[in-house]
Each structure stands twice: as structure tokens, then as C-alpha cells.
């Protein structure tokens, strides 16, 4: 299974999870896990999604970038291996 991890942080507001999962859903991704916390009004989230059926990750990336700019949130998407190789031996 090919997985991406989407990491989001920034000032909390309503609709963040809705808007991000909507983009994922529209690009044939299935959310596998969400870890989320709010510290001092700041929203932190990591979403793991199956992207095996997604045709173009670059399209997802540009849609996330668009929402990132609109919502003033930092949103980064990486294939899972980028995290796995860094943190697990």
C-alpha cells in the first residue's frame, strides 16, 4: 500500500479537517489515521492516507497548497518513506 502523510499546523479554525479530507476524498485517497492536538490555540495534525489509487500526487499537492494559502495554515504532504527512513532504523 502506498501511503502519504499530510502534516498541518497553524492557528486553529473550523473546517480544517473537513477541507483537507475533502481534497483527499476527491483524489481517491482513503484516510487511515489522524493524530491531532491543539496547543495554545494552534492546531497540529498528521493524517495518514492510502494513495494507491491516486493518479497524480502533484494535483493533490497543488490543491493542498491552494487551501494552505487561503487558510494561512502550513500544509505539507510527503510519501510515508520520507518519515520512516528518518525516524526508524
Amino acid at each position: 500500500m502506498k501511503k502519504v502523510i499530510i502534516v498541518v499546523y497553524g492557528k486553529d479554525k473550523s473546517g480544517i479537517i473537513y477541507n483537507i479530507t475533502k481534497i483527499l476524498y476527491e483524489n481517491a485517497m482513503n484516510v487511515l489515521d489522524i493524530k491531532q492536538t491543539i496547543v495554545g490555540g494552534y492546531f497540529n495534525m498528521m493524517t495518514v492516507a492510502d494513495c494507491s489509487k491516486t493518479k497524480a500526487l502533484s494535483k493533490v499537492k497543488s490543491e493542498l497548497d491552494k487551501y494552505s494559502k487561503k487558510s494561512n495554515l502550513s500544509i505539507n504532504m510527503h510519501l510515508e518513506e520520507a518519515f520512516d527512513t528518518m525516524h526508524n532504523v
Binding site: 502534516v7 489515521d33 495534525m45 498528521m46 495518514v48 525516524h87 526508524n88
Partner: peptide
């Protein structure tokens, strides 16, 4: 399941972004 904590995920993305 993915064996990465939220803290590790944030650490990695900050390395790239900031």
C-alpha cells in the same frame, strides 16, 4: 500502521519548511 508520532511528523516537516 504508520510508526510515526505527531511530534516526529512535525519535526520532519519543520526541517524542510523552516
Amino acid at each position: 500502521m504508520v510508526n510515526i508520532s505527531l511530534e516526529q511528523a512535525l519535526e520532519t516537516t519543520e526541517m524542510f519548511a523552516k
